[in-house]
Amino acid sequence: MGFFDNLFGRRERSAQVAKQRLMMVLVDDRYKLTPEMLEQMKLEMAEVLSRYLPAVDPEQIEVTLLRGEATDYLKADIPLKRGGE
């Protein structure tokens, strides 16, 4: 998405930026999980997943926090390269 935005010279709306930044800040505030730790976590997730699935790119993993009333959820989107070279 970032790639196409740059390609067409379109800037992401500030509300969306605010929401993403806040999401990260709230994870940090609530779970003491810093952005650096989150990056490290993605690397390690990729490492574990790569044992079972070919071609998981840690750069492509997107981790977000979903808030629920009593429980929060960590949601990870992990794209798999098709054909698995």
Binding site: R13, S14, A15, Q16, A18, K19, L22
Partner: peptide, 8 residues
């Protein structure tokens, strides 16, 4: 899209 919505 320049202010957080209520849904956000």
């Amino acid at each position: 899209g320049e202010m957080l919505s209520v849904d956000d």
